[in-house]
Nucleic acid binder design. Structure first.
Length: 718
RNA sequence: GACCGAUUAGCUCAGCUGGUAGAGCGCUACAUUGACAUUGUAGAGGUCACAAGUUCAAGUCUUGUAUCGGUCACCA
């Protein structure tokens, strides 16, 4: 009884583990050690291991998805660091072009302001200040998650180094004939006043009326009567027997919305005889399919709807109306003229919408920069074929190949202020575009007319696609030589096309090598019932709140255990709580071990029984866990360690040790040795998952137990 | 339209190359001045969606069916 009041343990173990008391200090310890930086790591390290962090958007606070990727990548980093590799994790922050501008526009709206009342320069300046503030906040949150990244290598996606790489690539694409500027159909968002890439368009299911109109001798169908003012071509399949009497190019006089017009018959394979009457009119300015037909036959095209979604003067009495208002009135007028044949009220189709505001996309023709993707995609696929690039699941590889096989040219121009300026001049007369990094071009190369700077910015993903190059400081730096290609790209499966595929293509394009040799994709983090987290549902789980309540280590374990890679995972606070208890279990195990080993005679040998015990249990456990780690099965490794520590170490080894320790002599010493070995092995294997509590305990252990004074760089057990 | 995934305990999910099922939470009973109540012990609860096939043996492989979910493409 008396002895219990003076246990032989550091005082800190007398009360339960409290994460709040230790996490900040431990992170400071790591940071001050300098070991986040590969140049400072102890020992000889030849094999390299590097990860480029997907830079979080500097426009808000971290969500559960961030917590997941930080955890997964930190586990990879800590594991490889302990295995003696020269490790570096490059952190970053993303200006996130359109995303951030949308966030900021909402903020402006709340304040009763609008981006359209400001100059681009004013807007840019305000968003800059906004992101810098968020960036600092966000970096702090990443640190709180325990991220062992090298902050001396932090990069922001608008830093000069990034801009330089992007400009060099832009120039090279032009020189290689892979870049063109042209008037093409783009996805135009009338609300955000910018074009979007195909990936930024969502298709929404709608049921709308579908109208059939008498168009001269033909019946044509449409869901969009408001685009039909300029339709003066009627298209049908060349083999459609119903229209055999009509010649390609034949002119037909007919009555249309605002009076008589002359229509021209066009025979084109795009006409689908199965669809409606088999005849259709086309609106090349506002439809991709129609645009292609018009190009094939060199037809005229004219803009019907303006950039804000209102009808232009060609609509005569309907000019200035927005399209939804005009639609009903146009139908009414055609009906009065006896040209409305019938209406199908239940026409189901999907319409393209802006992925941010859900407003319908209005296809428009606009001069934009495009990149020819096919040659780039071919190289990317070749890298997968050769094994230079691999995916952790076959499924992801198939998805990647499939997308590459039907890739289309990429519109990289955006009409937003918040982004990297496109370094180009545009002819004021013929619209010819010229790449101009030096800002030295003063007249059009084609027609010698005056030029002006291209007002547009790059699609964020065009610069993000070159992130591994910028981060490693392509082309001449030591980092580039040491760490490119990086070891693994770990990111969300939702951006495999947006980001991963573009990095692969542009990385190979610039260096001849894939930017990373392996792709590990994680799924979405959902709430405990598998529902998507959203502010409107009120089920958003903020990582910081979980950390405050259960500790960072518990959150990390909760995100890893029982969550197979690549699948969506549910975050349940009760599950996190289980790992808070686990951290405390480890804490109390340590308390018991230290209390019973203070008199351990250093260097004493095992009894044969204890040696056999070690061989039978510790050795295979370490082997199995290490194999899981090597296969990126952190979910299985975490669970295995959990059971090793709780069910085997605590419940079995420790309990069985109690009588043996009481025996004294060699039996006691041998058992002490086992307990110490179990403890240090457990701490090491658990460290990648629960870095804070394991390092906190490590700092309290006697020096003779450690192969390095900091657990983060201690040796992974064998 | 094309492709993909899922269907395992009350809930949310693991289960690798085939050998009669696991985790967390929840539930029941008992214990407890003991390293730890952020505990321990014991227990209830699953014909692993359905059908057929391969096999000595299938949650695990093959085929089909049903239900749910996702991605891509497209529509005059």
């Amino acid at each position: 009884m008396e002895e219990k009041q003076q246990p032989n343990i550091p005082e800190v173990f007398l009360s339960p583990y409290d994460p709040q008391n230790h996490e900040d200090n431990i992170y400071t310890l790591w940071q001050e050690s300098g070991f986040f930086n590969p140049d400072n790591l102890p020992g000889e390290r030849t094999e390299k291991f590097s990860i480029v962090m997907p830079p979080p958007n500097a426009n808000g606070s971290l969500h559960a998805g961030h917590a997941l990727f930080v955890t997964v990548q930190d586990i990879m980093m800590r594991f490889e660091r302990m295995r003696g590799k020269k490790t570096v994790w490059f952190p970053g922050a993303d200006h996130a072009g359109f995303e951030t501008q949308v966030v900021y526009e909402k903020k402006l709206q709340k304040e009763g302001r609008s981006r359209f009342q400001m100059t681009d320069e004013e807007l840019y300046k305000e968003i800059w200040d906004f992101t810098q503030e968020n960036k600092a906040f966000m970096i702090n949150q990443i640190k709180e998650l325990g991220a062992s990244c090298d902050w001396s290598r932090l990069l922001f996606t608008l830093d000069e180094r990034v801009v330089n790489v992007v400009y060099q690539t832009f120039k090279k694409l032009e020189e290689d004939g892979l870049l063109y500027r042209g008037a093409r159909i783009v996805n135009w968002c009338p609300k955000h006043q910018t074009s979007l890439s195909n990936l930024e368009v969502d298709y929404k299911e709608r049921t709308d009326p579908f109208y059939y109109f008498q168009y001269g001798p033909f019946v044509i169908g449409t869901a969009r009567p408001e685009t039909k003012f300029g339709d003066k071509y009627v298209v049908m399949h060349p083999d459609d027997a119903r229209y055999a009497d009509y010649e390609h190019g034949q002119k037909i006089e007919l009555e249309w919305i605002n009076g008589p017009i002359t229509a021209t018959v066009i025979k084109d394979e795009a006409g689908d005889p199965e669809m409606g009457s088999g005849a259709m009119t086309i609106t090349p300015w506002h439809s991709g399919v129609d645009f292609d037909i018009a190009k094939r036959h060199n037809l005229d095209y004219e803009q019907i709807i303006d950039w804000r979604g209102k009808l232009l003067p060609i609509a005569e009495e309907f000019a200035g109306m927005n399209i939804t208002e005009a639609r009903a009135k146009i139908v009414e007028k055609l009906d009065q003229k006896g040209l409305l044949v019938k209406v199908d009220e239940k026409y189901e189709h999907s319409v393209p919408c802006c992925y941010k505001c859900e407003r319908e996309i209005e296809p428009q023709i606009r001069e934009q920069w495009f990149v020819h993707m096919k040659p780039l995609a071919e190289q990317a696929v070749a890298a997968v074929d050769s094994g230079e690039l691999s995916f952790t699941t076959d499924r992801d590889e198939r998805i990647f190949r499939d997308w590459m096989s039907k890739i289309e040219d990429w519109n990289i121009s955006r009409q937003i202020a918040w982004g990297i300026k496109i370094p180009a001049k545009v002819c004021t007369k013929c619209q010819h575009g010229m790449v101009d990094l030096e800002d030295s071009i003063t007249e059009c190369a084609k027609c010698q007319s005056a030029v002006e700077p291209d007002p547009d910015t790059f699609d964020t993903w065009f610069s993000s696609g070159q992130w591994p190059l910028a981060v490693t400081d392509f082309p001449d730096s030591q980092d580039f030589k040491d760490f490119y290609p990086t070891s693994v790209m770990e990111t969300g499966k939702d951006i495999i096309f947006f980001w991963v595929s573009r990095m692969v293509m542009l990385g190979i394009y610039q260096t001849g090598k894939t930017p990373f040799s392996k792709v590990y994709l994680h799924g979405m983090v959902r709430d405990k019932h598998g529902k998507k987290m959203s502010k409107s549902k009120g089920n958003v789980i903020a990582p910081s709140e979980i950390q405050e309540k259960y500790g960072t280590d518990a959150l990390r374990m909760g995100l890893m255990v029982n969550n197979a890679p690549g699948t969506d995972m549910n975050l349940d606070p009760d599950k996190v709580n289980a790992y808070k208890k686990f951290a405390n279990k480890l804490w109390n195990i340590t308390r018991f071990v230290l209390d019973n080993t203070h008199d351990y005679p250093a260097g004493s040998e095992h009894t044969p029984e204890d040696q056999a015990f070690e061989d039978e249990f510790i050795v295979p456990a370490v082997k199995e866990i290490t194999q899981y780690m090597e296969k990126d099965r952190f979910d299985l490794a975490a669970e295995k360690i959990y059971h090793f520590v709780w069910d085997h170490f605590a419940s079995t080894v420790l309990e069985e040790s109690k009588p043996l320790l009481a025996e004294g002599g060699l039996v006691r010493a041998s058992r002490q040795r086992i307990l110490l070995h179990y403890l240090s092995t457990s701490l090491k294997m658990l460290h990648p998952f629960m870095p804070f509590v394991t390092e906190t305990i490590w700092q309290e252990l006697p020096a003779e137990m450690k192969d390095h004074e900091i657990l983060m760089v201690a040796k992974w057990p064998k």
